[in-house]
Design a protein around this nucleic acid. Structure first.
Lengths: 193, 193
DNA sequence: TCCTTTCTTGAATATGCATTCAAGATAATC
DNA sequence: GATTATCTTGAATGCATATTCAAGAAAGGA
């Protein structure tokens, strides 16, 4: 009897970073062994193959981002304030020009989601959970009369998701606060009409 | 003396489709020879290498889309009407679930733009030209008092670009008119506030 | 018709890569 | 301490793939 030695979360976060920098197809197993510190045999033993490692990394990414999201909204502050801070945080990530701060879900969706049904469904589920988190925040804001009573929380949450996707794409071409911040502000103000 | 035999535009459109379906890295030269009908030697003679073919395909994509854009807005109809039709057309492309109707600029930006400076700059230029086309339409709408006089056309054009990027990403997860059309409508109505 | 130039062909090359596996190492159990 | 079950190691394997190049084909000019 013997237990596995490596720290699963640390390995998955390293793999996630590697996939974010080079994309799935261009990240070689050599890159992954270097990034994770694991030898090929260990990776195949733990995750079956390269695709299994991507799936596990996406799961870890979702867990990490969800925890971050819950934490940001866990206080009793004005939910709209929290949402504004959330959007501003995304702008900051775009400004960093750091590939490891990008969104693994949308990146993987674009590259492999169209070609692999397993991964497409996994990402779809994760993005949907994220959308429902935003929807809950909007319902809270509505019950506190911070946004119009006739707001359709689901559509508004979808609109915010759409805006966040677009903001991140825009950030790839213009990682510039003078450009991105007004866009994030305008997106936020769409809640108040 | 002898002239090249193949139709350059047809070849580039075929390559563009291949890249849209599988992505750049996963599209093999074998895929490209099959799609274009050209043999490897001819591709290397005409485009230098696989990356050169991608660059040429992106150029063709931009030319094709620009021509389509100009044509849609060339009539003397209400520019806002035309813009609405443009957004509705994008919704239709999303609904088709056809990878060849996706946007090669954003797809290539996501996959290779972060890794290759040549391609990043080319895509950046093309997306910027597209944004300026929208900006011109907004200026026309403003001069016809169809949108508020204090509209900042540049920011509004950026916001529309952002929305279009996001709409296409959203379409990958929910290719559903009941979801996408309200989002496009809400994006359009952001012009009128 | 013959010659020259240019284009086309596709097999060969060389490299890179995902995956496997058998030997070695380590921890728990007796 | 011996035994056993499990984990780790990393070189070997076989396949996929980007690129090259020399021979073949076709067009224009003499």
């Amino acid at each position: 009897m013997r237990n596995a030695e490596f720290d699963r979360q640390a390995v998955l976060r390293a793999a996630m970073r590697a996939f974010l920098v080079k994309g799935y197809a261009k990240t070689s197993m050599a890159d992954l062994t270097k990034a994770t510190g694991l030898h090929p045999g260990s990776i195949y033993c733990a995750f079956e193959n390269k695709k299994g490692l991507l799936i596990a990394a996406i799961g870890q990414y979702h867990d990490d981002r969800s925890a971050q999201f819950q934490q940001l909204f866990a206080n009793n502050n004005n939910p709209l304030h929290n949402l504004k801070a959330y959007l501003d945080g995304i702008v900051q990530e775009c400004l960093s020009c750091d590939a490891t701060q990008a969104c693994l879900l949308t990146k993987a969706l674009s590259e492999v989601g169209e070609q692999d049904e397993d991964i497409h469904q996994l990402i779809h589920r994760n993005l949907h959970a994220w959308q429902q988190g935003i929807e809950q925040v909007l319902n809270m804001a509505k019950s506190q009369r911070l946004i119009p009573a006739d707001t359709n929380s689901q559509v508004q949450a979808q609109f915010l998701m759409m805006g966040i996707y677009g903001l991140r794409t825009f950030g790839h071409t213009e990682p510039n606060a003078a450009v991105l911040q007004p866009l994030a502000d305008k997106l936020f103000s769409s809640l108040l009409n």
